[in-house]
């Protein structure tokens, strides 16, 4: 069934293409698996009728913008818009070349959390419905109800962009976000409480299973380097072999490199096929950036990028 917001999106997208206001639309269409969507990148106005909006639009579509020429209309949630703003700040994208179709987002449902709670895989579930602060899962006509904060993506629980600021078209009024910063940082809290040696062991065990598929980097809008440092051979900053030490150095360097540009959208963690908890790094980093520089990535398109600006009042003990 097509929702009201989808109807509006489809007509907006069609109109943008028909009137030549954009050459390409980037949005979501139904995927080939249950509760799964897939990016729709199209110049065809007929394809606009395939656009969807639902609580499973996990991708941060801003990652595609830099590779598409001309004017692009993009379907974006609050966090995705912050990525777009950050790209504009970094001059990777011109504001006039992007038509932001803002989607008020009430949080994305984390299928991994639902699978764990239900003890079943996603393809064994019949339905998942969000109703305000509840999520109802149906399996073989029996319904189970969960508080939304138990099944939303960790990054969403820390969302502070329910009110979309930067947009060209807004599809709906503000959405009700179920925020729970404590829940969002539950792993960070555990890690902070660990003595350094134990924390080191934790990350060692996480990065031992990294296969260096670079999905975290590839889905990251802030990772737009034409040549990533891991591919440099002279000097080779890290080994291409997936040893845990090199895997860890790769991720830590990547995280440092996107500091001030990373919006903690959580795309890296969602993409990771071996479940490394990357949100606990990206969120912690965003917290440090906020603490040291009073800066929040992607919230002001006219602001200088964090690493391009210096103020004498800035903390000098940032390396610690």
């Amino acid at each position: 069934m097509t929702s009201k917001i989808e109807q509006k999106l489809r007509s907006v997208a069609r109109e943008l293409l028909e009137q030549g206001k954009v050459g390409t639309i980037v949005g979501y269409e139904a995927g080939s698996l249950k509760f799964t969507n897939t990016p729709l990148i199209t110049k065809d106005k007929e394809a606009a009728d395939r656009l969807v909006i639902n609580p499973f639009i996990i991708n941060n579509l801003s990652v595609f913008l830099k590779d598409i020429g001309g004017k692009v209309g993009v379907v974006a949630k609050g966090c995705d818009i912050r990525s777009i703003v950050s790209l504009i700040q970094d001059k990777q994208l011109a504001r006039e070349n992007v038509v932001i179709i803002g989607v008020p987002c009430a949080g994305i449902i984390d299928l991994d959390k639902i699978e764990k709670l239900m003890g079943k895989d996603r393809d064994e579930l019949d339905d998942i419905v969000r109703e305000n602060d509840k999520v109802i899962v149906t399996v073989q006509r029996s319904k189970k109800e969960y508080p939304a904060k138990d099944v939303l993506i960790d990054s969403c629980l820390a969302c502070d962009q329910p009110k979309i600021k930067e947009y060209d078209i807004l599809l709906d009024e503000e959405a009700t976000v179920v925020c729970d910063d404590e829940a969002s940082r539950s792993l960070i809290k555990k890690l902070e409480a660990m003595p350094p040696a134990q924390r080191w062991e934790f990350w060692k065990s996480q990065f031992e299973r990294c296969i260096r598929c670079y999905a975290c980097r590839q889905v990251c809008p802030a990772c737009y380097c034409k040549r990533c440092f891991v591919e440099e051979t002279e000097p080779a900053w890290i080994s291409p072999l997936p040893k845990w030490q090199d895997n860890l150095i790769f991720q830590v360097t990547r995280m440092m490199h996107v500091a001030g540009r990373c919006t903690d959208c959580g795309a890296c963690e969602r993409a990771c096929p071996v479940g490394i908890p990357l949100h606990s790094l990206s969120k912690k980093m965003a917290e440090i950036v906020q603490e040291l520089f009073e800066y929040q990535a992607g919230t002001d398109k006219d602001a200088l990028p964090l690493m391009a600006a210096y103020e004498s009042k800035e903390a000098e003990d940032l390396i610690r």
Binding site: P39, F64, R212, C213, Y214, R217, V219, S239, A271, P273
Partner: peptide, 25 residues
């Protein structure tokens, strides 16, 4: 290919993909 992000998941996790690289340390 438009929506492919060029990561290595599908090939690394494919049971028939056998490509490898050689590195000296």
């Amino acid at each position: 290919s438009a929506k492919c992000v060029s990561c290595g998941i599908c090939t690394f996790l494919c049971p028939t993909c056998y490509c490898f690289d050689i590195n000296d340390e």
